[in-house]
Amino acid sequence: MLISTKGRYALRTMVDLALHGEAEPVKIKDIAKRQDISGKYLEQIISILSRAGYVRSIRGNQGGYYLSKPASEYTVGMILRVTEGSLAPVDCLSGEDNPCCRQQDCVTLKLWQELDAAINGVVERYTLEDLVQWQKNMKDNYVI
């Protein structure tokens, strides 16, 4: 499984909104500059996050984006799934039912199921608030 730039940038965007969006809405150009992401690409990502109801916007000169809910209510898995789709390591595990005609005889199915469970366990264990705290700790440990 490979997480695309869309998924990685969506996580960085959500962390940025959590860090900077409490007092006032955050402008796309400010996120793009801080996160070194193309403004046009960031607009596409924000659009996905907005359609999912993860971010809201305020129009106008003082407008921008902010999180719809507290950072503690978003898991990393939620954010990655909305941008990446399924995080399953193989196609046969990407839906609710396994459509593979070989599943009864597939010697590797147990391996893929365990890998899928491990991936889901990690991305569901951590919240956006965890990432925000990690970011703050990184800045607190800065030494000259």
Rank of each mutant, 00 (worst) to 15 (best):
L17D: 02
G77D: 08
S94E: 12
T5D: 14
V26P: 01
V107F: 12
G64A: 05
W112A: 11
Q104F: 09
M1A: 15
K136S: 06
R12S: 13
I48W: 05
A88R: 11
T13E: 01
L93R: 07
C106S: 04
K139E: 13
Y142H: 12
I58L: 11
V107P: 00
D105K: 01
L49F: 07
S57V: 01
K40D: 13
L2H: 09
T108H: 10
G7R: 03
V26L: 04
V82P: 00
K6L: 10
V55H: 05
L11W: 06
D140Q: 14
D105Y: 08
S86V: 10
S86H: 09
P70A: 00
S94G: 04
M138D: 05
G95E: 12
L131T: 08
S50T: 02
V107N: 04
P70K: 06
S72T: 11
S38E: 12
I37P: 06
Q135W: 09
N141M: 15
T5V: 08
E73N: 06
R34G: 02
N120Q: 12
Q104H: 05
Q103A: 01
D105W: 02
M78C: 00
I46A: 15
N98A: 01
A88V: 12
R34S: 04
S38P: 03
D140A: 15
D105Q: 10
Q35W: 00
S57F: 07
S68H: 03
V123C: 07
L67G: 06
L80T: 07
R51W: 08
V143I: 09
V55C: 09
D140H: 09
L80D: 06
A10D: 03
H20K: 08
Y142T: 12
Q113Y: 10
L11F: 07
H20L: 04
D105F: 09
L109V: 10
P89F: 06
Y41W: 15
V132N: 01
N141K: 14
I119V: 15
A117Q: 13
E114M: 12
P99T: 02
P25T: 04
L67Y: 04
H20G: 00
K27Q: 12
Q133K: 15
D116Q: 11
R51F: 05
S68P: 04
I119N: 11
S38M: 05
A117S: 14
S57K: 14
I46S: 10
V107E: 15
N98K: 07
D130F: 05
R59M: 10
D36P: 00
I46M: 15
S4P: 01
A32E: 05
G21C: 04
I28K: 10
G95P: 03
G95T: 06
M78T: 08
G77K: 15
Y66V: 08
G7C: 08
A88T: 06
L11R: 00
L49C: 04
S50F: 09
L80W: 12
K27T: 03
P99K: 05
A71W: 06
C92V: 11
